[in-house]
Design a protein around this nucleic acid. Structure first.
Length: 424
RNA sequence: GGAAGGAUGGCCGAGAGGUUGAAGGCGGCGGUCUCGAAAACCGUUAUACCGUGUUGAACGGUAUCGAGGGUUCGAAUCCCUCUCCUUCCGCCA
């Protein structure tokens, strides 16, 4: 959510910045309603002031055991009724304003390249190089089925399309990746592990920006206003919803493993084979709360923390910076880490690391008290996948496949796999 | 699922229709005292919004005692609905 004052006072600048996202956003409904609201507020507050003074008078007269003239009550009753009418009108306008505000996306940071689509995302850096194969590398779904560690048919039978049954070393590999990532981030990178609820309420979902605009992408619990989380970002960022933190406690680092549930509406026909696009997948998420002064430095270190997972696994990847046209709704700046998949010779997104600045903090009301002058400000929130576990498993299978169809287990995972060196 | 109780400021805890943003205590901050500290004493101690003003000084106003509605000239206080928490019974991992 943007600052209403900013939109009100610098509407042209805001309009221009938002247009870089590629779609014109009409701020006029907000500006009109906001003006109306302030006019109503002023009238209501003036009437309430008068009523409060008159009420105090009555109290004083009664204290002196004197009689209150009856017409005082009757005229106050009329003004009270007038206040109530105005309050009802105001209450009708306020949700409309909130609606406008909640559907306006974040302003891209000045360092974000202007562009239209993912084709315009510049590569920031890459690490390693694609592995050389002396044979034709297979896609992960073939590898998984041949080794009987991934069972797509039975996943579909149990639930439906885009659900997969992991079996034996496949299930163990997934669990090992989760543990490896959590251990790395908690022991080496200073994150505190949390295990949050996997369902959240509407307010929490609104706090991070998934609602009200993207309800179609979410699984909702029937009969309750609860939703399955699409990412741990949602429950973890909302840990401090409606709280005021002390500046000394910042920055805060959290790492969380959770499954993620997404409807993937509008992606029919895309990535139908394999694990790339599932309705349920595992992810280790990194979340940071920082002061505005340090949030961009925190974004760079968060990105490095996520990259470290692939470095230790020894898998080639590149980092791109999302251009203005490709930027997510809530984000001011996002880096994607894209991992190399040799079967298709493409890079696929495996992590998305973003600085939301105060956009989510304003929605969820997450603030901090400055040490210097005790003033209260919104924190900056950041998060990034560290990493998407299913896609990491895909990358391991494809990059570590051997000519005989077996998989060499990456060195760092062996302690987690009971010493297993090869999946065959 | 049944029964009972509860929700007040950073925390504990009063308040039971009328200058109550809310006693008292704890904690925090500033000060006096001290070589320093402790103790004692004095002072201070919320947030949001609107307006005037400034560029982020100050002042005025309004709202906020779990949430929403109602009664009333006036509600933390009375009534209704909801949410959450606690305890007991049952059930369950």
């Amino acid at each position: 959510m943007l600052d209403a004052k900013l939109i009100r006072e610098h509407s042209d600048l805001v309009k221009q910045k938002l247009s870089e996202r590629g779609r014109a956003i009409d701020l006029d409904p907000f500006l009109t309603l906001d003006k109306k609201r302030r006019e109503m507020l002023q009238e209501i507050e003036k009437l309430r002031f008068e009523r409060n003074q008159a009420s105090d008078n009555i109290a004083r007269i009664k204290k002196e055991k004197k009689e209150v003239p009856p017409d005082v009550f009757s005229s106050l009753k009329i003004s009270s009724q007038r206040i109530k009418v105005l309050e009802d009108e105001l209450k009708a306008v306020e949700p409309q304003i909130a609606d406008c505000l909640l559907t306006i996306p974040n302003i891209p940071h000045s360092s974000v390249p202007v562009g239209h689509s993912s084709d315009d995302n510049p590569e920031i850096r890459h690490w390693g190089s694609p592995p050389a194969f002396s044979f034709q590398p297979k896609p992960h779904w073939e590898i998984g089925e041949q080794l009987q560690i991934l069972d797509f048919n039975r996943g579909a039978k149990i639930t439906g399309a885009r659900f997969t049954l992991y079996r034996g070393a496949g299930a163990l590999l997934e669990r090992s990746l989760i543990n490896f990532m959590l251990d790395l981030h908690t022991r080496q990178h200073g994150y505190t592990e949390v295990l949050p609820p996997f369902m959240v309420n509407r307010q929490t979902m609104t706090g991070t920006g998934q609602l009200p605009k993207f309800e179609d992408d979410l699984f909702k619990i029937d009969g309750l206003d609860y939703f399955l989380i699409p990412t741990a970002e949602v429950p973890v960022t909302n840990i401090y919803q409606n709280e005021i933190l002390e500046e000394e406690s910042l920055p805060l680092y959290y790492a969380a493993y959770t499954p993620c549930f997404r409807k993937e509406a509008g992606s029919y026909g895309q990535d139908t084979r394999g694990l790339i696009r599932q309705h349920q997948f595992n992810k280790v998420e990194l979340v940071k709360f920082s002061t505005p002064e340090t949030s961009y430095a925190e974004l760079e270190s968060l990105l490095l923390n996520a990259e470290e997972v692939l470095k230790r696994l020894g898998i080639h990847y590149r980092v791109v910076c999302l251009c203005t046209g490709d930027l997510g709704f809530s984000s001011a700046k996002t880096y994607d880490i894209e991992v190399w998949l040799p079967s298709q010779k493409v890079y696929r997104e495996i992590s998305s690391c973003s600085n939301f600045e105060d956009f989510q903090a304003r929605r969820a009301s997450i603030r901090y008290r400055k040490k210097e002058n005790k003033k209260i400000e919104f924190v900056h929130t950041l998060n990034g996948s560290g990493l998407a576990v299913g896609r990491t498993l895909v990358a391991v299978l494809e990059n570590y496949q051997q000519e005989d169809g077996s998989i060499a287990v990456p060195e760092v995972l062996r302690p987690y796999m009971g010493g297993m060196e090869t999946i065959r």
